[in-house]
Simulated scan of single mutants.
Amino acid sequence: MKSQSIFQIMRNQELRSGRSYDLGKMNLKELWVAYLTHGTILLYFSLILACIVGIYYTFTGWMPVLASTIVMILGFPLIWYIIHRWIMHATFLYQIKWTASLWKRIHFDHHQDPHLLNVLFGSPLNTIPTIIIVGGGIGLAVGGVPGAFAAIGTAIYMACFYEFFHCIQHLGYKPKSHYVLRIKQLHIMHHFHFEKGNYGITNYFWDRVFGTFYTDAKSRPRSPTVFNIGYDIKEAERYPWVMLKTGSPPRDRPEGSNFREQKKSSTHQEQKAA
């Protein structure tokens, strides 16, 4: 395929929309365009700017702002770990009719088809209220109103940062950076080998603390629920709301999945990086 310039890629209306694109078939240039023109990311950038304006109009000194920013930078990986492990991978959400659609959108769809861009990003209807409540609450406690704006803006920036590297981890692209290659390998194993571990995205410190970190496929048996995160046919019969919303039974692997190739590639990259 002939290499395209960034301007040629930007003229691709379907790609610019960031919808229904398979990251496994995209290159890095295409990802940058899809990411920077995606409505969710543009909304996040706008909210970061709004938080900067909020800091300006409520400014009482640099200490509350800096303290809240630092606390959020340090705390974000733990917040992400808690949400990812105990909410996104929890079973109680699909067992309740009123939260089944929420669980489907925030994580089930992503595990059913890990490379699909339009379900990789969290829905702003879910992420923004969470960031405002959690991040704003922490910032308010640390630095008052300007601290709340600083913490919210920092949390949104961290979410953007996480989402970009999350895309990289599902991109059909081998990173040149050893660090990025390694976190890509760890996340691929979360999706294609054993989902009850490696909950981090760019930081696996809390996985190590809570004993959910593993470095290679030999460390854990392959999970039969790695693609449906526990919502199998039997569970769908008991709690049908996600299945009814999807319009089809849960799959035990993505449609058109190249699981064997993913696993082989991941193993090869691990051996080369070792």
Rank of each mutant, 00 (worst) to 15 (best):
N12S: 02
Q13P: 03
Q13D: 13
E14K: 13
L15M: 08
R16T: 13
R16C: 15
S17Q: 13
S17E: 13
S20H: 14
S20L: 11
L23R: 06
G24S: 13
G24I: 01
G24Q: 03
K25L: 14
K25R: 14
M26F: 07
N27H: 08
N27Y: 04
N27F: 08
N27K: 07
L28F: 15
L28I: 15
L28N: 05
K29V: 04
E30N: 05
E30Q: 15
L31G: 10
W32D: 03
W32G: 07
V33N: 09
V33A: 10
A34L: 06
G39W: 14
L42F: 01
L42A: 01
L42R: 14
L43Y: 06
L43D: 08
Y44V: 02
S46P: 09
S46G: 15
L47F: 08
L47I: 12
I48K: 03
L49Q: 10
V53H: 05
G54V: 08
T58F: 12
F59Q: 02
G61D: 06
G61S: 08
W62L: 09
M63S: 06
V65P: 03
V65H: 00
L66A: 12
L66T: 13
A67K: 04
I70W: 00
V71S: 01
M72D: 01
L74F: 08
L74A: 12
F76E: 01
L78E: 04
L78W: 07
W80I: 01
W80P: 00
Y81F: 15
Y81Q: 03
Y81V: 08
I82F: 09
I83P: 02
I83Q: 05
I83M: 11
I87E: 05
H89K: 03
A90Y: 05
L93W: 11
Y94W: 15
Y94N: 02
Q95T: 06
I96T: 10
I96L: 13
K97W: 11
W98T: 11
W98S: 15
A100P: 12
S101G: 14
L102G: 00
L102K: 00
K104S: 11
R105Y: 05
I106T: 11
I106F: 14
H107L: 09
F108H: 14
F108G: 01
H111W: 12
H111L: 12
L116E: 11
L117P: 09
V119L: 00
G122V: 09
G122N: 08
S123W: 09
S123V: 08
N126G: 11
N126W: 15
T127P: 00
I128H: 10
T130I: 15
T130A: 15
I131N: 01
V134H: 01
G135E: 02
G135H: 03
G137M: 05
G137P: 09
L140D: 07
A141W: 15
A141M: 14
A141D: 04
G143I: 13
V145I: 15
V145R: 06
P146R: 02
P146G: 08
A148K: 03
A148S: 14
A148L: 11
F149P: 10
F149G: 05
F149V: 09
A150N: 07
I152E: 04
I152R: 03
G153Q: 06
A155W: 03
A155D: 04
A155Y: 02
A155H: 01
M158K: 10
